[in-house]
């Protein structure tokens, strides 16, 4: 996996459903106090892109560098 990629969250579209957080295999995401997804642990992230695939709001994207 390309460790260079970045997980970008569109806070305007994120509805805080927690799907990306719950199913991230590396626990790299959290819901922040405003109930928006937050890429809290980039160091754990494997850049698998599953969060992007499962987000119902097209609000999270794995951007390749």
């Amino acid at each position: 996996m390309d460790k260079e990629g970045k997980v970008v969250i569109n806070r305007e579209w994120c509805k805080g459903c927690g799907i990306c957080v719950a199913f991230c295999p590396e626990e790299a995401l959290i819901l922040d106090p405003e109930e928006k997804a937050y890429w809290a642990h980039p160091e754990k992230c494997k850049r698998c892109g599953l969060c992007e695939l499962r987000c119902p709001d097209i609000a999270i994207e794995l951007v390749q560098k």
Binding site: K15, G16, C17, G18, I19, L53, R54, C55, P56, D57, I58
Partner: peptide, 8 residues
Amino acid sequence: CPGCGHGI
């Protein structure tokens, strides 16, 4: 709605 599957 938040969590609705249709967006996926």
